[in-house]
Amino acid sequence: MAKQARNLRADSVSPIAVAKPRLPLADAILPYLRRIDTARWYSNFGPLVQELEERLAHRFGANALAVTCSNATQGLTLTLKALGATPGTLCAMPSWTFVATAHAAVQAGLMPWFLDADRDSWMLTPQTLEAALPRAPGPVSAVIIVAPFGHMPDVAAWLDFQDRTGVKVILDAAAAFDAAGDPRLPTVVSLHATKVLGMGEGGYVVTDDPALASRLRRLTGFGFEGSRLSQHAATNAKISEYAAAVGLAALDAWPGDRLRWFTAAQTLRQALYGSDIGFQPGWGRDWTTSVCVVATPEGAAPRLIAALKAADIDTRQWWGEGCHASPAFAECPRTDLPNTERLARSTLGLPFYMDLDAADAARIADILKSAG
């Protein structure tokens, strides 16, 4: 009878999803939709898009300019083109990143060159790239650095690298909406539904260079600038007024939502207190994002994933084994990647969302502690 009761309790426990995205509710978007109805301006850089860009730029300071685009991958691709990165050259990047980083370089006509991440910060460092440049398998015209899972790199150090080497630096801050705030490097942020602030699909590029912002704007709109003559080869990467309505409603809710994300992070941190699980520096204390990627003991990730799965708790290895492991990039050059391979074996994406409660956090922690 006792065994049957235990089985009944186990069967009654609900699965825990790895993520539960939440966009603004219909009532919050409605005032913006009514503005669209009144203006009858639906796309092509309308008043809501302009307002959204102004509010996004304001987060980066008085001299910042924001250019919205259909997604952050397009933002990276078009920034490479706007900076004049030479097609056929190499674009350096960490292999420890989402595949969108590499896809963007390919779409811009560059060849990804994969380098190793730092063991502790999980980022490509200027020192690593500068040491590798003399042995590069071809000319390097750009580097895309990455804010892993929302943790920002040292912008000043990369600006110094750019000044000394002439290699253009772009920051892939797709998951760093909360932490990004320095426009001196072109910074690309995602507004995908899974991000900490989302509008379904979308992204934006922030810069303090008006000329670069102008080139980006032309590249998102068929090369038009003040006339119906296309000035150069471009694409259509605009967002609509309807997308901007969702983005503006999300920004309205951001102060309260940010607090909810921090509260959820503290709930999970407290549940895992005393375990051998490590969090990214500042995660849930200084900055927040929509995922919780943790460090586990060397090589422990597969075992912990199996234990969590057995308990009906979903997980993700968001970046798999690194970009270099994807067949799409098998022919791309790379350096030795021991830290990337270690991170693939030892990091784990835990369930995390803004309304994660203490009971679910305790379930996750109990499994991790018992399986550790």
Results as ranks from 00 to 15, higher is better:
116 D>F: 11
340 T>W: 10
79 T>K: 06
88 G>Y: 04
103 H>Y: 03
269 R>S: 07
25 L>I: 04
135 R>L: 04
331 E>S: 13
153 P>N: 00
177 F>C: 05
318 W>L: 09
290 S>F: 00
201 E>G: 09
347 T>H: 08
193 A>L: 14
33 L>S: 14
295 A>D: 12
22 R>L: 05
177 F>N: 05
236 N>R: 11
301 A>D: 04
145 I>C: 11
56 L>N: 03
309 K>L: 12
62 A>Y: 06
104 A>I: 00
264 A>M: 03
90 L>S: 00
127 Q>F: 03
202 G>A: 12
246 V>E: 13
103 H>R: 10
273 Y>H: 08
118 D>F: 01
166 G>Y: 02
312 D>K: 13
305 I>C: 06
172 D>W: 00
243 A>S: 14
98 F>C: 01
266 Q>I: 00
199 M>H: 09
282 G>W: 10
99 V>A: 13
310 A>P: 15
299 G>V: 02
223 G>Y: 06
65 L>H: 07
355 D>V: 03
62 A>L: 09
343 L>C: 03
349 G>D: 11
357 D>C: 08
303 R>D: 06
53 E>P: 12
189 V>D: 08
74 Q>T: 05
61 G>A: 12
63 N>Q: 01
122 W>S: 10
225 E>N: 10
148 P>T: 01
100 A>C: 07
180 A>W: 06
51 E>R: 15
221 G>C: 15
225 E>K: 10
223 G>A: 13
158 W>D: 11
197 L>D: 11
165 T>W: 12
46 G>K: 13
12 S>I: 12
356 L>K: 04
140 V>Q: 00
225 E>P: 15
247 G>F: 01
277 I>E: 15
190 S>L: 06
304 L>W: 12
293 V>G: 02
331 E>A: 09
141 S>A: 02
70 S>W: 09
61 G>W: 12
211 A>L: 15
354 M>H: 07
149 F>W: 07
329 F>C: 01
360 D>N: 05
187 T>H: 13
38 T>F: 07
265 A>V: 01
41 W>C: 10
118 D>I: 00
71 N>C: 03
321 E>G: 09
146 V>W: 00
69 C>D: 15
370 S>Q: 15
152 M>H: 03
14 S>I: 09
50 Q>I: 12
195 K>Q: 02
306 A>N: 04
244 A>V: 15
139 P>C: 08
33 L>M: 13
368 L>V: 12
201 E>V: 02
335 T>H: 02
137 P>S: 13
228 R>F: 11
9 R>V: 07
55 R>H: 12
11 D>G: 09
255 P>F: 01
209 D>H: 14
230 S>Q: 15
288 T>R: 01
89 T>F: 07
71 N>Y: 04
227 S>Y: 06
355 D>M: 01
82 A>I: 12
67 V>G: 11
188 V>S: 00
184 R>W: 07
155 V>D: 06
98 F>H: 02
232 H>D: 15
279 F>V: 10
112 P>K: 02
6 R>P: 04
186 P>V: 14
